[in-house]
Write a protein that binds this DNA or RNA. Structure first.
Lengths: 208, 208
DNA sequence: TACACTATATGATCGAAATCATGATTTTGC
DNA sequence: GCAAAATCATGATTTCGATCATATAGTGTA
């Protein structure tokens, strides 16, 4: 039961039947927008993207779930999934039955609190994402996203995440590299060196 | 104790000391980004905007809390507030002590579950917001936001919410009115008539 | 009432990112 | 291993929204 150790909340009381280990191939979908919700998930290895599709073919990467994190927690209280979940690389995930989780919430206060914390983190992450999308210049936006989230996955995926085209993102990255604010590790892999991470001093004036 | 009736979760067990009623004037700040977190809030009347400020003066309206909703729930698990909370119109709010709420989570399973549900709703709302910001055309974006969230507050506030300038938003609105997709109630007040709300048929192909 | 201030509205210009285009490189599936 | 597909990269052109400017309608208040 090694996996229980790395779960962000204690599962000792969860029925064994409530847990299933799944192996996903690349591009394999775990669930799709509109599917009936039956479970939340925990990533052991690999990565899963949560993607929302809009009417006219637009798509947003809402979240990239990586090793050691849970996802689709919000589905506990909604009837259908509101996004697609697709493995972007081969992944192992644990499926946690929705009904069992809900039962455990009622039975185990510590579990409930741990789950609440995860939800709160989700909210914070989404807010950070919203904050980044509000930044106007492509260069500033890409840099902010790189500082806050890092380049998870391909540049193309990163571009969708920051709400720009791949071209615009690449151009911004190459300019940032020129300026020394970003390091190009290798083709398609960029990173913010520690030195360039300036602590944002929150100097808010009390005057309106 | 009228207010307890309209709270989205049962507060009967919350210590009386944990609740304080506050009266906010227009533009009065409840807390600011960086302040130590001590409470979550419930809106009785009026409206409170949660605004996030980025390094270079950009701002995002993360959330508009209106009558009957709670806000700053995420602060339960973080040390400082990550955004400003300001009344955009005179407002009455109830301050709910953070420590008391956390105690109640442990003591009352029903309360814990109700709170979890609220968090989940928050996540869903933020996702919808992210989805809207991913829409490229100004016209499409404004229309989508109007359908999903309605025009809460002024056009200027709505413009910030959708990530456009006031001018671009007004132009988009006036075009949408021309097309009959949006109704102009009066100067600065727009609405999507029921007839134009097309149910988005989720026809996702299983291929790819 | 008069004044200041803010929000709404629309027009003109400019610039930044989307789009289109073309190759090179890497990965993936057979 | 090899062909096909996807990704990375950069250049040229176009388009849409930002910006600047100006005017009007409300709103608060002295």
């Amino acid at each position: 039961m090694i996996e229980i150790m790395i779960l962000p909340f204690p599962l000792s009381n969860l029925k064994r039947t409530g847990r299933t280990k799944l192996h996903l191939k690349k591009n394999e979908a775990l669930f799709r927008q509109g599917d009936i919700t039956t479970a939340i998930f925990f990533v052991i290895s690999g990565a899963v993207h949560l993607v929302r599709h809009t009417h006219e073919g637009h798509s947003v990467i809402l979240h990239r779930a990586v090793s050691g994190t849970t996802f689709a927690e919000a589905s506990l209280f909604s009837d259908v999934y509101h996004c697609d979940a697709t493995a972007t690389e081969p992944a192992e995930v644990i499926r946690l039955s929705k009904t069992d989780i809900l039962a455990l919430v009622t039975a185990d206060p510590d579990f409930a609190q741990a789950l609440l914390k995860r939800f709160a983190q989700d909210v914070q992450t989404h807010r950070k994402h919203l904050e980044i999308l509000a930044i106007k210049g492509a260069e500033d936006r890409v840099f902010a996203a790189l500082v806050s989230f890092g380049q998870s996955g391909t540049v193309t995926a990163f571009a969708i995440f920051v709400g720009l085209t791949t071209e615009a993102t690449l151009r911004a990255l190459s300019k940032l590299v020129q300026q020394g604010k970003v390091t190009k590790l290798k083709r398609g892999h960029y990173e913010v060196p520690d030195t360039s991470i300036t602590p944002r001093s929150v100097t808010i004036k009390s005057s309106v």
